[in-house]
Every structure is written in structure tokens, then in C-alpha cells.
């Protein structure tokens, strides 16, 4: 009941919300770990010190299963299930690293990277950048001429944060943070397939939308597409005098 918010740790991202079910013991990469029933494999792996790479998952939000980076292998089961949406079971044996998994993850990350501004890959420090580094992905084989969102206009209407669609990986973490954490439901994904994009209210600038600027979406964004303006040199307009 409470663990979903009370079990959070500042320096760990379990990937999915902590649960408080009965203890379940399983094996992750040979490490035995006991977690409450209802936990995801991703949470169990993080608890076992074997964190699984992820993009659309974070422990303040329910699992979504969209990014396909967190794939794992489970002994006795076929395929490569997403560890965020697969729940733990007693005696399960899970493998988080293998050549196949690495290849699959790399393929997925390269696809993400093919629509990410090239000049901003190297010195970034977002979760997305960290994941790329951890998986050893620094470039993609798809060339520069493909469809992309590089020219999509930046929404800087909100005085505190901006939205740069070029860096958006459409993981829906902002949409879910606005709904699940804040409860305002101001953000959604509009469009289908490659045209799908994050929009506020009826595709309005953030400042004019129902957004209440709580910052939950900025906090949730893994790729600095939603980011505080105050982190940019000279971008931030300083405090104005009262009643100016």
C-alpha cells in the first residue's frame, strides 16, 4: 500500500514501484535475491545489484513496457520478455546479460539514436546518455538522411523548463508522471508511429496548457527533452522585482 512511495531511494532507481507483497526468492545472474511479490524482474535485478538498462521505466511510475531496452532471458521460458512488465516468481532464474541481449539492446538503442541530434550525444549526462555509454553505443548505422525530428520547434513558453522535441524519445514518462504522480493529465502523446509526439493539452504551448508546472515531467524525462532552463548558461531570466 505504501511501499510504492515509501520504498523509494534517492540513489537507486528500481525501475518499477516497490511493492509490499509476501517475499519471493529468485536468482538473477546467479545472485539470489528476495523481493516482495508483485515486484518486477527489473526491481529484483536492481535490488540484487544487477541493474538492467532501461529508458521508459522509473520507479515513481508504473511499468509501461515500451522502450524494449530492458529485455532479459528467463530459464525455461522462450523469448526475451521486458523485465519491467514481468513479475517475479519463486525460483525463477533470470539472465540480464548475454550476447544476444546485448545485440538486441544495441539494436534498439541505435534506432533511438538515429533520431537524436548527433552533436548532442557526446557530452550529455541524461539517463539516456548514461544508458548509451553503459551499452557501448555511440553511433548508429542508419546514416543522416532519414526522417527525424531535429527541426521540430523548441517549446520555451514555460518560464522554468523547455521542451525540445528533437531530444524526445517518446517514452511517455512525462505523460505518466503528469497522470500518476501529479494527477493533472495535462500531457499526452498525439499522432501515430513516427509522427507521435508529446503534446500539452490540445497541442498547446506548455504555458498555455493545463500544465501546473509541478516539474514531475521534467523529473521523469530520461533524455533532457524536458529540462530546466536554469541549467543553461544565460538562458534563464533572473528574478524580476516585485510588481515590475
Amino acid at each position: 500500500m505504501w511501499s510504492e512511495i515509501r520504498g523509494l531511494k534517492d540513489d537507486v532507481d528500481y525501475g518499477t514501484p516497490p511493492r509490499d507483497g509476501a517475499p519471493v526468492t529468485l536468482e538473477i545472474d546467479g545472485v539470489t535475491v528476495t523481493v516482495p511479490a508483485g515486484s518486477s524482474l527489473m526491481l529484483a535485478a536492481a535490488s540484487a545489484g544487477r541493474p538492467i538498462p532501461k529508458l521508459c521505466a522509473t520507479d515513481m511510475l508504473e511499468a509501461f513496457g515500451s522502450c524494449r531496452v530492458c529485455l532479459v532471458e528467463i530459464e525455461g521460458r522462450g523469448g526475451f520478455p521486458a523485465s519491467c512488465t514481468t513479475l517475479v516468481a519463486e525460483g525463477m532464474k533470470v539472465k540480464t546479460q548475454s550476447e544476444t541481449l546485448s545485440r538486441l539492446r544495441k539494436g534498439v538503442l541505435e534506432l533511438y539514436l538515429s533520431d537524436f541530434p548527433e552533436s548532442e550525444i557526446a557530452d550529455g549526462w541524461s539517463e539516456f546518455h548514461d544508458t548509451l555509454k553503459a551499452e557501448g553505443v555511440a553511433s548508429h548505422p542508419y546514416g543522416a538522411g532519414g526522417f527525424n525530428h531535429f527541426e521540430a520547434p523548441v517549446d520555451a513558453s514555460n518560464p522554468y523548463f523547455l521542451f525540445d522535441p528533437a531530444k524526445c524519445i517518446v517514452c511517455s514518462r512525462c505523460v505518466r508522471a503528469c497522470a500518476e504522480v501529479q494527477g493533472t493529465f495535462a500531457i499526452t502523446i498525439a499522432g501515430r508511429s513516427f509522427d507521435s509526439k508529446v503534446v500539452a493539452s490540445q497541442d498547446q504551448p506548455f504555458f498555455e496548457s493545463e500544465c501546473v508546472s509541478c516539474g514531475a515531467c521534467v523529473q521523469a524525462c530520461p533524455s533532457h527533452a524536458l529540462v530546466e532552463k536554469s541549467l543553461f548558461e544565460g538562458e534563464y531570466v533572473h528574478a524580476e522585482s516585485a510588481e515590475a
Binding site: 522554468y160 501529479q182 501546473v212 508546472s213 509541478c214
Partner: peptide, 16 residues
């Protein structure tokens, strides 16, 4: 995230 009153959430005033 370990703040026991807010559990990682914020509002426009404190956050910005």
C-alpha cells in the same frame, strides 16, 4: 525521493 512528505514530488513553488 526519500523526502517523507513528498516522496520525490514537487510543485511549481518549491521546484522552480
Amino acid at each position: 525521493k526519500e523526502g517523507k512528505a513528498n516522496h520525490g514530488h514537487s510543485c511549481i513553488k518549491g521546484r522552480f
